[in-house]
Design a protein around this nucleic acid. Sequence first.
DNA 1: TAAACTCTTGCACGCGCGAGCAAGCTTGAC
DNA 2: GTCAAGCTTGCTCGCGCGTGCAAGAGTTTA
Lengths: 337, 337
Amino acid sequence: MTDDELSSRPLPTADDVAAIAGVSRWTVTRAFKNNASISEKTRAKVMAAAEELGYAPDLLASSLASERSNLVAVLVDDFNNPHKLVMLERLTTAMRSAGLDTLLVNTLGSEDAQHALRNATQRRVDAAVLIGVNFDDSILHAALGARRVKKLILFARASDHPETISICVDDVAAMREITDYVIDKGYRRPLFLAGPDTRSAHVFRKETFVAHWQSRFDVTPEVLSVGSYDPRRAFETIERNLTSRRAYPDVIVCENDALAIGAMDALRHALGLRVPDDIAVTGFDDVPLAANRVYDLTTYRQPMTAMAEALVEVVLNRSDGSGLCQFGGRLVPRHSA
Amino acid sequence: MTDDELSSRPLPTADDVAAIAGVSRWTVTRAFKNNASISEKTRAKVMAAAEELGYAPDLLASSLASERSNLVAVLVDDFNNPHKLVMLERLTTAMRSAGLDTLLVNTLGSEDAQHALRNATQRRVDAAVLIGVNFDDSILHAALGARRVKKLILFARASDHPETISICVDDVAAMREITDYVIDKGYRRPLFLAGPDTRSAHVFRKETFVAHWQSRFDVTPEVLSVGSYDPRRAFETIERNLTSRRAYPDVIVCENDALAIGAMDALRHALGLRVPDDIAVTGFDDVPLAANRVYDLTTYRQPMTAMAEALVEVVLNRSDGSGLCQFGGRLVPRHSA
DNA sequence: TAAACTCTTGCACGCGCGAGCAAGCTTGAC
DNA sequence: GTCAAGCTTGCTCGCGCGTGCAAGAGTTTA
C-alpha cells in the first residue's frame, strides 16, 4: 500500500482489528490488557491482526471510558535549577516503563499554580506531582479542597499537609550527616545559606542544621537567606554580605547545590578567596555540575531512581504513600569541604 | 458544603451546568469556546453556573469528539544538556498561553524513539516536537510513513526531510558570524569541536565553519569530533587530543556551549592553560552557565521565545511551517574569545 | 406589516473504548 | 453420559463532548 493510501485512511480502531481477527471488539481490548481473561491462541490471532493494521489502542478513549488515564501531571515552577532536568529524566524513565505518560506543566510563576493544576485535571490526570519550590499552603488547599486532583504528590520535598503524599529523603538524617561531616573536618564558624521561605511544602535542612549544631556546640549558627534557589542571587547575597566583614565563616553550608555553586563563584571571583582553603562549601543534590573539577562540591545525593519508582507505586495504588519521606541518600565528599 | 460532600461527588459535566443555567448542554460548550455563536448574556449566565459548580470542560472527551487534542508531544533524548531545560521552559510557556498542553516523552535511548512516538500518538497529539539530537532518518521515516503523527516538528535543528517542519536559526549565517568574529579577533589556528554525527536532523555548524574559514584563508581548519554533547566527553577529548601536541590551536570553536564548557574545563584543569590568553573558546546556545563569571563564554543566542511562538503557530495551523529555519540570533561576545 | 435576513439555540449522532454481566465453551468428577 | 465449575467470549450501556444542521428568536427592509 502506498503512502497516499495510508495518509487518507483514518487510524484503525479495535473494530477493524476485530473484523480481521474474526473476534469481537472486546476481545481485541482484552488482548491488549494484562491479566485479562483471554486464551493465548486468540490473543496471538488478535495481535497478528493488530500488527497488520498498525493498530494501537487509543489511550484517550480508554481514559474516557475508564477511571484511569495513566497520565501524570508534573508541575515545575523553577526551570533555573538544572537539578530539575535530572528529576524529569528519572521521573519520565520510571513512569514510562510503568506505562504512565507525563504531562509537563509549567506553572509560569508562583501565582499560576492553581490554574496549572486545574489545567492538568481537565486532562483527567491520575496524579499531580509537584517538583517545584514555591508551592505553599494555599495551593495545596485549593487543589485538595476542590478535589479536582485525585492525588497530590510532592517529590523531593516534605509536607505536613495530611492529604498530600511526600516522597523525599530523610532531610533530618541527611543534614545531620552533613553537619557531622563538617564538624569532623574541623570547621567551627559555619554560615548556613538558605533558599526560598516556603511554608508547608519545604525542606527541613535549615532547621536541622541549626538544631544539630546547637546540640553539638550550644551556639546558634548564622543563617543567611537568599530567597530563591537562583545561583546568581546566591552570588549577590554572598558578595554583599561578606565584603563588609572582619571575620569570615570557615564553611558555608548550602541548602542545595544551586546555592553552593553561586556561593563558590562569589567567594572566588568577587571576594578573591580560595575554596576550600579560605572557606569551605557544601551543597545538596549532587547536580551534574557538582562533579565538575571546577567546583568539586561536597554534597548529598538523593536516591532519585528509587524515589521515582516509589512515585510510580503510589500512582498505581500499589502503595498508600506512607513512610515515603525516609529515603536514605549518600554524602558525596569531594574537595570543596 | 463539606469536603466529604465534594469528595464523593463526581466532577460536574456540561449537563449539570446546563441544568442550572437553564440552557442546553451545547450552549454550555459554546460559552467555553472562543468565536462561538452565543450571546453575551447567556454566556454570562452559563459562566456563573459553571463557577458555582466548579465546572471545567473535560479536555479528554473534547479531544475524543473533535480532531484536535491541543496536546503536543515533546520528545527529548538528551537530559544531560542544560539547554534542554531552557527549551522546555520556553516551549511550555508559549504553548500554555496558546492553550496547548505538553506531553513530555523521554525517548530512553536512541533506539526507543519509535516507541516513544507511537506512545505519543496513542494520546492523539496534534504534533510531535523533537528537541533531541539522535533522531535520524529511520525515525523520521517511520514516524511519517505510518502517518501516525500528524505533524513532525524539529525544534532548534534543521532537516532536509521534506515532510518535516524545522524551526531553527539560520545556522549558516550564525556560524559565519562567529567565524568572522574569531577572525577579527586575530585568531588563526582554529580547532572546531563537533558533537554527535547525526544524519538528516542536525546542525550545519561544522560544515559552515569549515567552508567559511576555507573561503577566507584557503586552508581547511582542523575538526575534532566528540560524538555527543556531553561536557565530560568534551573534556576527555580535548585532554587526550591536546596533551601530546607541540603546537596548540589559538581558538576552539565549539558546536555548542556544553562542549565549550567541557573544553574550557579541560584546558584549565587538565592542561593548565588560560582562557582566553592561551586558547580562546566559543560556544553556541548561551546556556545560563555561559554567563557565569567562571566561563564568561562568547556564544550565540538563539531567539528561543520567537522560535517557540513560531512553533505554536505551526501547531495551530496558522503557519504552514515554511521558511522557519531563518531565525536570526545574536552573537554574545564575552571574555572567553 | 410581511418578508428576508441574521443571530442564537437545540438536537441526533458519533468519537473509541471499558465495566460488568450473560451466554457459550471446556474440563473433569461422578 | 451428566452436571457443576471454571474459563472464555460477546454484548448492552455509557464516558463527556463536538459536528453539522435545523428550528427558533430577533432584527431590518420594503
